[in-house]
Write a protein that binds this DNA or RNA. Structure first.
Lengths: 111, 111
DNA sequence: TTCATATTTATAGAATAGTCGAAATATCGT
DNA sequence: ACGATATTTCGACTATTCTATAAATATGAA
């Protein structure tokens, strides 16, 4: 992680729709959700704008996609967020260790 | 912390200059740094653009300023970043506790 | 008070991001 | 192959953010 990757990831998360999408995908676990379900759950429409936001998150490496039949499933890339948090925390702690205070994200069990 | 505050903070951090500024202020501790020193250390100029970025971080509640003589000192608002990290971690961990894995930011001793 | 330093504010222009609607691609079911 | 569904891509447009420059404000020093 470097400052360029960090700003890219932060930019991707710095939009309400995308932050909601990301959060929902994190909660969804490794399977993720297909676009239509994702949009429905967030009260959004699966249109070009929604697709644009998915691409932003995807380009930032925060989410991944896989085709499954007619549907495209998106899922959170947990390590990416962990790296971002680590980067922010590192600087947040002024180069000192936070002691026990690490963070990391667990992948929820498949529902 | 809610999604609106979170996106505001993320937007503020989602720019290389501002992320550098923020990081440097975190490292500087409670005293902070005055604008000219901050700019010099980052290889930037203390001009209107730099001031704009300081205002963005300030509006997002991530940094504070105080006047001291002719100089204006900026310093990191540690609790604000802790709240943001807590918010991200919470969602990152899909509503489950991270166990021991908390994070928080310590204010470095005054240099 | 007048001048110099430190920083912000204002205004306009340039660059980037976001939205909208239509057309394109991919896959499935018939 | 054809039609329906799911999603992306494209092009034009709008909105937001960033930069540059100059003028304004604040403080301290002479």
């Amino acid at each position: 992680m470097n400052i360029e990757l960090a700003t890219t990831a932060l930019k991707a998360l710095a939009h309400e729709t995308r932050l909601r999408v990301y959060r929902r995908l994190v909660q969804a676990g490794a399977n993720g959700l297909c676009v239509a379900d994702l949009a429905t759950e967030l009260g959004a429409e699966a249109n070009g704008s929604f697709s644009f936001h998915l691409k932003e998150l995807s380009n930032a490496g925060l989410i991944r996609s896989r085709q499954e039949g007619r549907f495209i499933y998106y899922s959170a890339d947990y390590p990416a967020m962990n790296e971002l948090l680590a980067y922010l925390t590192e600087h947040c702690c002024a180069g000192q260790s936070c002691g026990e205070q690490e963070h990391s994200c667990t992948i929820p069990e498949n529902p």
